[in-house]
Design a protein around this nucleic acid. Structure first.
Ligand SMILES: [Zn+2]
Ligand SMILES: [Zn+2]
Ligand SMILES: [Zn+2]
Ligand SMILES: [Zn+2]
Lengths: 166, 166
DNA sequence: GCAGGGGATGGTATAGTGTTGCGTAAATAG
DNA sequence: CTATTTACGCAACACTATACCATCCCCTGC
């Protein structure tokens, strides 16, 4: 199978099974059900470190013989988002697995436009800067969308400045 | 007419005409044409400090007797974005006028979920924090999407903590 | 004035993304 | 085993965005 590895090398089989284990555990604790469908979709998302669109997921499900229509996918994604297991990337209309589902995380995403990999940062310093600015404005934050598109280190090295990276 | 004022009080008629003047001037300098349609759409967007969806704009245009189809609106929005005169808010699929079109600006947007007003910040300190983090990751930034949803000061005062604001 | 060229606009069709509503099935509770 | 809740299948629809082609307008050179 041809999935993308993230530019930070790691044991991908482990990373997927670890994520699934953690998801099971989190749902257990929360008293929610990680059903077969939910697990299947979460695993699909983790298999690809790339963001997957809802209709990408739909296509894969149907390939795998599971009959599904859009609402099935969106409902499941809603659940997974609610549990903090996946994030939606607004600038891509796509979804990625959350790497720190136990912590609360105002995700900050580094999106490589060449290899499509997404790295989620915790980025406390950014969060602090944001909270300082919004505080100064008297603005009460509910949710922060921070998505940074560019080129990852691996791709910068790979094409030696070819695509604007230097 | 029923447009929303931003929560920072200001002379709205001025703010719109100023924005239009600056737009004309910028296009003049750049050697591009701020045609009647482009000016009309830019003004529509400025009239409302709320983000307007492309189809909102389309509806208003048609109300105003100008026949338009989606591509007309999107083309015009592309132009205005290219000139830095409007920004697209990814988390809303909507567009707002840029308050500082002359400066380069990695827009940071405070979006009030009650009154729908959007305030664009320059937020140098946030930009610095982001650039520091991405630098540490060896990530080359092309574009930053920073959209903060919450409650603006005016709405916090208005409903005295009713909606989670305190 | 007249032809040519490039940017801007009109218009149809279609692709891509997300939601509503309702009925059925499966799991949990009593 | 029945009642209740929760999840799933499915059809239809709404919203967002793009591809493609034709026409028009404006400017320039002749
Ligand atoms: Zn992995
Ligand atoms: Zn990359
Ligand atoms: Zn104004
Ligand atoms: Zn407000």
């Amino acid at each position: 199978m041809t999935h993308a590895l993230p530019y930070r090398t790691h044991n991908h089989a482990h990373c997927v099974t670890d994520a699934m284990d953690e998801a099971r555990s989190l749902c257990q604790t929360a008293g929610t059900r990680l059903t077969q469908l939910r697990a299947q979709i979460l695993e699909l998302i983790w298999q690809s470190h790339r963001p997957l669109g809802a209709y990408d997921i739909l296509a894969i499900l149907n390939d795998q013989g599971r009959k599904a229509a859009p609402p099935t996918v969106y409902r499941t994604l809603d659940f997974l988002q609610g549990m903090g297991l996946v994030h939606r990337i607004a600038s891509l209309n796509a979804f990625v697995g959350c790497s720190q589902p136990s912590h609360n995380h105002n995700g900050c995403f580094l999106i490589c436009e060449e290899c499509q990999n997404v790295l989620e940062l915790s980025a406390d310093s950014i969060r602090q800067a944001i909270s300082k600015e919004t505080g100064a404005q008297g603005f009460k934050v509910r949710e922060t969308t921070l998505e940074i598109a560019g080129t990852c280190p691996a791709c910068i090295n790979k094409d030696g400045g070819k695509n604007g990276a230097q």
